[in-house]
Amino acid sequence: METAEYSVVLFYSTSNALQAEKLFKKTGVAIKLIPVPRQLSSDCGICLRFDRPDEPSVKAILEKKQIEIQGIHPI
């Protein structure tokens, strides 16, 4: 099995993370809410993990819906 490469979206507020989760579930992008990995520092305790190749579509969706994010980081 191939090891997947992931990135995470960090948010300022949990509410934004949950808003984004719902949005991605609707659009069919594979995501998962996970605790923020220890090496990263975030304003909110949860973040959205996605397959790294999906980054352009993840960014486009967040921008289109004007959801404020703290950043995107590879993990």
């Binding site: 719902k22 996970i34 949860i46």
Partner: peptide, 21 residues
Amino acid sequence: PGRSAHQLSIEAGRIIYETRE
């Protein structure tokens, strides 16, 4: 909700988000 990152905490957060929406 929104305090821990375990599934029950996230689910509690989802319930509040749904109400907000």
